[in-house]
């Protein structure tokens, strides 16, 4: 489990996030919400040591992040970045890269790696495009391939930065359903989302960032009740009970 203790971080001497304490417990989907520029991506990147922190600490399974090699970190947590390169290689090859942390030099892919890739492609619903080149795929298909790559990494924690961008509503729901399935398997899933209603409907927990500080954190129910979402986004979030649970809307 990844835990952040009083974490601050930023760029060029200016902190973007301030004193954030948060943990990503297994078996739960945590949605990271907040306005543009509030530090959601910085939080994820710092949690993985991809960017420097200016204060506080990150630990994975109780071990300080600095004590872990990059490879050990990669075995603990997979990361789906916000901006994704599109190299001219096949989708399958791309997903195979997810196995990288499990191999040592000179990186010969083994039978079990190929099996893991097949599983990941299946889970992310990307088997159909496995042999096509990344450049030929639509934005949504590429997204699924990237998702499959993160799954192939077989890490107990998955951090996703805006995994639903480029996706139509049907595929967005598929991603959320996949996140739920992963959590049921006992993984911790953290996703930066922009769609409040989607997040409230599907995530177990919500962490709301505002101006680089943690404005609210708790179950979707608790955060809704706190009214912080309304204050932060300047909206009036409402909900309605339906046969399939609470549905959220705003006016």
């Amino acid at each position: 489990m990844i835990e952040l203790h009083d974490l601050s971080a930023g760029y060029g001497g200016r902190d973007v996030i301030h004193g954030i304490s948060l943990s990503f417990p297994p078996g739960r989907v945590l949605a990271l919400l907040g306005p543009n520029g509030c530090g959601k991506s910085t939080l994820l990147r710092t949690a993985l040591g991809l960017g420097p922190s200016s204060g506080g600490q990150v630990s994975i399974d109780g071990v300080p992040l600095e004590a872990l090699s990059l490879r050990d970190r990669a075995k603990k947590a997979a990361y789906l970045p916000q901006s994704r390169a599109v190299p001219n290689i096949t989708a399958r090859r791309m997903v195979l890269h997810g196995r990288f942390p499990h191999l040592s030099y000179p990186r010969r892919y083994r039978q079990e790696d190929h099996a893991a890739v097949d599983r990941a492609l299946e889970l992310a619903d990307a088997s159909g495009v496995a042999h096509r080149h990344m450049g030929e795929l639509s934005g949504g298909q590429r997204q699924k391939v990237y998702l499959a790559m993160a799954l192939a990494q077989d890490a107990p924690t998955i951090l996703m930065d805006e995994p639903t961008t480029f996706l139509d509503i049907g595929h967005q729901l598929e991603v959320m359903a996949l996140a739920r399935r992963l959590a049921q398997d006992g993984r911790s899933v953290v996703m930066v989302l922009h769609d409040l209603c989607l997040a409230m409907r599907w995530a177990d927990d919500i962490a709301l960032l505002s101006g680089g500080r943690l404005a609210a954190h708790g179950t979707a129910e608790q955060v809704y009740a706190s009214g912080e979402l309304d204050r932060t986004f300047g909206i009036a979030l409402r909900r309605m009970e339906t046969d399939s649970g609470w549905q959220y809307y705003y006016g």
Binding site: R45, L48, L50, S69, L70, R71, D72, R73, A74, K75, A77, A78, Y79, P81, S83, R84, A85, H97, G98, F100, P101, Q153
Partner: peptide, 9 residues
């Protein structure tokens, strides 16, 4: 890309 590469170890 640098971020993805590093996150893969």
């Amino acid at each position: 890309g640098a971020d993805t590469a590093q996150s893969l170890g």
